[in-house]
Amino acid sequence: MSRRPLREIAHARAGDKGNRSNVSVFAYAAEHYPVLLAEVTPARLKREFGGVLRGEIVRYELPNLNGINLVSVNESLNLDGHGKSWSSLILGMEIEVP
């Protein structure tokens, strides 16, 4: 096991629709998809980034793309009112990689 920033094994994109934003996260290598599932959980995201990712975080799993989709609520007074920078926020988290 090694502790590494998520960005070393995955890429991500943030988008918004109305007052909800989503961040999709994809493992570069298929072997790391289970790592995404184990490490990038709504509970963990809520614990680390709860101040920004408000409300319930919903996760959808896409094994055919080795990716996950995370949906949360954004905040209009923020300089980044659409949550476009959340992809970089999430890619900065440290994860355990076998």
């Binding site: 988008g15 989503n22 896409l62």
Partner: peptide, 29 residues
């Protein structure tokens, strides 16, 4: 990589993307 990122852009449930024409399912793409 690029196309994957765009496939989920502004999407919530990829298996139920509502449009006026069809309830689209991108999860099988």
């Amino acid at each position: 990589q690029v196309v994957k990122e765009q496939l989920l852009y502004e999407v919530h449930d990829p298996a139920a993307y509502a449009t006026p024409d069809v309830l689209a399912d991108f999860s099988t793409a």
